[in-house]
């Protein structure tokens, strides 16, 4: 007899790329379970602050719970400090929130993107239990194995071992980064059944936030 399982994998792919003065955060909008598509239009990107967005895939119920916890904590932060949380602060909060459930984890794979307090693009990438790292670009979720090597190849970030430390931000212009994101999603959709339908691309820069949508294969 089938036993109760508290987890499901609802699939989905998240990508973020940081530039000198922008950040691109993208995720597809398909939500699946097993071989079934539940809906073709579910946004995986959550705006946590004016310059801080979270893209998450994995188990949708956990992802939503996590987003709600972070939003509530951010409200409390705003009441207490009269300002919005910075992206690196949100990065640390996300790590702590994930680790708090270390022994019954949120099954969520996150990429946090936005601008830091200097206006520079930043990306934080996580595992399900909260270990994280600031990077120049990242991919998470069901299509990450297809996308990450392409990003590595195209964006060659300086080794984190270099001293003095080099900026991890990518040398691409904003438009080049957006085009790259469109290409990697179109490619991942070809081979990953959990990625498809539509990709939502959010661009954060000094002007504010801009959104673009590109249709993907629906099969």
């Amino acid at each position: 007899m089938a036993r109760f399982s508290p987890y499901d994998n609802n699939g989905g792919t998240c990508v973020a790329i940081a530039g000198a003065d922008y950040c691109v955060i993208a995720a597809d909008t398909r939500m699946s379970t097993g071989y079934s598509i539940l809906t073709r239009d579910y946004s995986k990107i959550c705006k946590l602050a004016d310059k801080c967005l979270l893209a998450s895939s994995g188990f949708q119920a956990d992802v939503r719970a996590l987003q709600k916890v972070l939003s509530s904590r951010h409200l409390v932060y705003q009441h207490q400090h009269n300002k919005q949380m910075s992206c690196p602060a949100m990065g640390q909060l996300l790590s702590n929130t994930l680790y708090y459930k270390r022994f019954f984890p949120y099954y969520a794979f996150n990429v946090l993107g936005g601008l830091d307090s200097e206006g520079k693009g930043c990306v934080f990438t996580y595992d399900a239990v909260g270990s994280y790292e600031r990077v120049g670009y990242s991919a998470q979720g069901s299509g990450s194995t297809l996308i990450m090597p392409v990003l590595d190849n195209q964006l060659k970030s300086p080794s984190p071992l270099l001293l003095p430390a080099k900026d991890a931000v990518t040398p691409l212009s904003e438009n080049e980064a957006v085009d790259l994101v469109k290409d990697v999603f179109a490619s991942a959709t070809e081979r990953d059944i959990y990625t498809g339908d539509r990709v939502e691309i959010v661009i954060v820069n000094a002007e504010g936030i801009r959104r673009e949508y590109i249709e993907l294969r629906k099969d």
Partner: peptide, 20 residues
């Protein structure tokens, strides 16, 4: 909503076999 809390909105929804 499902029994583990997965939830979404759509123009049409179905549960169980209905999904297939």
């Amino acid at each position: 909503v499902s029994m583990i809390g997965v939830h979404f909105e759509d123009n049409h929804v179905a549960t169980g076999f209905g999904n297939h």
